[in-house]
Design a protein around this nucleic acid. Structure first.
Lengths: 254, 254
DNA sequence: TAGTGGTCTAGACCACCCG
DNA sequence: GGGTGGTCTAGACCACTAA
């Protein structure tokens, strides 16, 4: 049976010093409970570092099942606001906002999402032995071959990002024949190598001669760089450095 | 009743062209189901863009309740691997890995997490009228006051990051009296202003004179910059720019 | 060891939305 | 309209861990 009515009562509440009369709603959805808990935290009723009531207590207060409370609290825990542990109870986290979720779109989508026309140019595509540095990054043998691809992503015919990529031909031999004028290396790999895990890093770098020439900027300008190693079934498949044009920002809402 | 045994059967499976005999486990935990679904996607059994079986079908196959399947699929959906919609079914996402979750720790914790000793120096602390640029960032009136704080975060007595912060005294008037030699501005605000939302941006910038002096680097070096606006109850409380020392990287696993 | 969250179940109803 | 996922419930047992 779902309950749809609210009621006003004086609640048996261990936090009574903050409350005189408490409007106790029958909260029937875990979203409502999440919001309620969130606002109590933001209002300072439940302070960072303290333990909040148990699932059973909250279920009684909100007149819903424990599972519903659990779902709401787990959602807040996933957001980093609560710290939950068996026996220990549920604690309001100190330092609440600690995670930024950044979208890492395919560059074509990123460009088109800004309302620009996307185009990519292949600057260089060469099959070769990997350099020691690349061997280390991709955990490769000395005698294998990799494909080295340099390309430029354009937005409305302006350089948007310069890409320097190494592809492990042991894992995706077909990449040697890929026609990168029709589809970017990134998207080819996405479509032909299945799902992947990987590591991403961001940092700032002064533009070298190669980056400056391709992006049309001065040498030494600060570039935002994305570096990524992609793996399939634990085998490194590609290592890529993406040098964005000067002024590029990534942003997100916490 | 929990089931603990596995069994081997020929499964009535629409993907039989991939399977001769399928080991159908009784998967009793949503983690196991998540892993199984994930590996089927990675193995190409369920291809990007296609619909996977319904919750009911999977519950029958795995011999568990629909709720358990649902939980597993929802977890994968939250990770961006599946796209679920009522009536439409559950689809394997194209462009699977699109989100990077970056931890944004308090700098003290970031430094201590690297095994270094943290120290912070206040370089400047001044109450003043906000500049037009800052007024715009914080959505302030012209006649209010803000606190401008410049400080340096040190790791093992080496500069780690230079911080340029503006604090809205309308919202947190007590900040004027905060003793920033004992606690950094960031942590003071965290502890005294409750929970907060905000926007974060990252970009690269050539070091100016001020940054170079404080970080002990050359002017023009590429710096990784974090910019953040923090709001409480919809009111902007602080705007901060954090210039990391040259070579700083942030990284994450997808 | 006792108390807390973690999880599973079977059933039910609902909301959305594709055909 | 009907099929799919979204959600809630009441009860049960389990696993971790703080005290």
């Amino acid at each position: 049976m779902r309950k749809h009515n609210n009621k006003k009562t004086v609640v048996n509440c261990t936090f009574s010093r903050y409350l005189i009369v408490m409007t106790s709603k029958s909260l029937n959805s875990w979203h409502e409970i999440q919001d309620e808990v969130l606002s109590r935290i933001q209002a300072g009723i439940w302070k960072p570092g303290t333990i909040i009531p148990t699932e059973n207590d909250l279920a009684r207060e909100f007149e819903c099942s424990r599972a519903t409370v659990s779902r709401a609290l787990n959602a807040l825990s996933a957001d980093g606001l609560l710290d939950r542990r068996r026996k220990g109870g549920t604690k309001v986290n100190l330092n609440p906002v600690r995670k930024a979720t950044l979208p890492i779109p395919v560059i074509r989508e990123e460009v088109e999402g800004r309302g620009c026309t996307y185009r990519s140019l292949v600057i260089e595509k060469e099959k070769r032995k990997p350099s020691p540095a690349i061997r280390a990054q991709l955990s490769l043998d000395a005698d294998c071959f990799v494909m080295h691809v340099k390309s430029l992503h354009m937005a409305d015919n302006q350089p948007y990002a310069f890409e320097d990529r190494w592809v492990n031909l042991d894992v995706v031999p077909d990449f040697e024949q890929a026609d990168l004028t029709k589809i970017s290396a990134n998207e080819w790999l996405l479509q032909n190598s299945g799902f992947s895990a990987g590591d991403v890093a961001f940092y700032a770098l002064n533009a070298g001669q190669q980056e400056a020439e391709n992006l049309g900027c001065r040498e030494g300008e600060a570039l935002f760089v994305l570096e990524r190693i992609t793996q399939v079934n634990g085998k490194a498949i590609t290592f890529v450095r993406l040098f964005y044009r000067p002024g590029h920002r990534i942003s997100t809402t916490l």
